[in-house]
C-alpha cells in the first residue's frame, strides 16, 4: 500500500507569518521528514508551486456548456405562429 500525504496550508497566512514562526514550523517538518526517511517509508516528496501558478482542469461531465444558439423555432419565430 502507498499513501500520499497532502499538507494544506494557508498561503496568505504563511506569507505574513513572522520569520521565527516559519523557521520553527519548517524545523518540525524537517524532523518529521527525517524520521520517515530513517524509517525507510518515504518514496518521495515535493513542495507545490504557489496557487497563482496552478493549472486546474475542470470538465463537467465531458461536455461544454454552450446552451444558447441560432434556434429557428424560438428566436426566429418568437411564438408568432399564426393560429390558422
Amino acid at each position: 500500500m502507498q499513501y500520499l500525504l497532502m499538507i494544506y496550508g494557508n498561503e496568505a497566512g504563511m506569507q505574513s507569518a513572522p520569520k521565527e514562526a516559519v523557521t520553527q514550523m519548517n524545523a518540525a517538518y524537517a524532523a518529521y521528514s527525517e524520521a520517515m526517511g530513517k524509517a525507510g517509508v518515504v518514496l518521495g516528496g515535493n513542495r507545490l508551486r504557489p496557487t497563482a501558478e496552478a493549472t486546474t482542469v475542470r470538465v463537467k461531465g465531458g461536455k461544454t456548456e454552450v446552451l444558447d444558439g441560432p434556434y429557428a423555432d424560438t428566436k426566429e419565430q418568437l411564438g408568432g405562429y399564426l393560429p390558422d
Binding site: 418568437l78 411564438g79 405562429y81
Partner: peptide, 15 residues
C-alpha cells in the same frame, strides 16, 4: 431571463 422562453409561452397562451 431567457427571452425565447417567454415569447414562446406568450404565443402559446395567446392561442
Amino acid at each position: 431571463d431567457y427571452q425565447p422562453y417567454w415569447a414562446a409561452r406568450a404565443g402559446l397562451l395567446a392561442r
